[in-house]
Design a binder for these strands. Sequence first.
RNA 1: GGUGCCAUAGCUCAGUUGGUAGAGCAACGGACUGAAAAUCCGUGUGUCCCUAGUUCGAUUCUUGGUGGCACCA
Length: 309
Amino acid sequence: MKPTASKIIDPTLIVVAGPTGSGKTDLGIALARHFGAPVISTDSRQVYHGMKIGSAQPSEEQLAAVPHYFIADREVTDRFTCADFEQEALALLEKLFSEYDYVVAVGGSGLYIDALCNGLDELPDVDSKLRKELAERVSREGLETLAGQLRELDPDYYEAVDRQNPARVVRALEVCLQTGKPFSSFRTGGRTQRPFRIIKTGVTMARAELYRRIDRRVDAMMEQGLEAEAHALYPFRRLPSLQTVGYRELFAYFDGEYNLARAIELIKRNSRRYAKRQLTWFHRDPNIRWFHPQETAAIIASIERNGSR
RNA sequence: GGUGCCAUAGCUCAGUUGGUAGAGCAACGGACUGAAAAUCCGUGUGUCCCUAGUUCGAUUCUUGGUGGCACCA
């Protein structure tokens, strides 16, 4: 690709996806440096302040190397959803693309990545009282009763939804009750075209290697002081932001449910399971090109082949 | 060296009065639209150590090995 006086490059979002512990952060920074791009995080937990070790936020040096966004800029008490992320990230990208040709999006939250690349349907806000009430009803009346109500209010979604999943049933029901309209009437399933090019890269490796890396990283987190970090967050353990691998297991240890060795074992196991769920999500996306994290040159070449015209 | 016990899924083990086997944990596959590191659904993945017998048929009984453990020398 020979440089021309007037290069024409569409604004390009380079997405780096992959399971936890696969080396996304390092690769993202390598790409950001190569393309002269900033990094926005697509990680639902690294946005929170105070969760540095457990969510494996980039180090000080890494943060200093390239501009980062959505890292540690919320409090754990803040409500921050995938919809908030979509909205704020889009606004930010519009600004960044006036200055940069490339932006690198790094993170493992599949829903956040999809929200950013494809858009979410417009759904109404739900009153927090209603949400709380439904949570209580699930435990008091049982999921089946609520599913029965959903069948009345939104038969279409009732047929499609996983009725054994409280999160799904409650979510649908709260939208129905809030608006008086079926939840499915808001779901278009359509994709929003973004005003920038998107190149998706996935990082992975043999399962055994990935699991070794995860185990080692958990040990490293403990050495860096994860226990103290979790202890400081213990008062917030019921918040959504703290429903996070690494913290939950230590909270249970603090509660005396098991010893520290068992907690570490569970953090490793649950990280592996999380990695597996991430891979399931990402494998569904045919636009992701997969690489081993060490193939930096190949990744860059692949992006350059597709990223300019 | 001798005697005894053991050998079954990745691990710890159960079981088959002879008809090729099942629990827990681990693992594997999947779903996913405002909590998504969340939430939920599904799946035994096996030369029953090897060998030669007996038998219609051996993982199961018998012979001889191999490996492990224990005790005695």
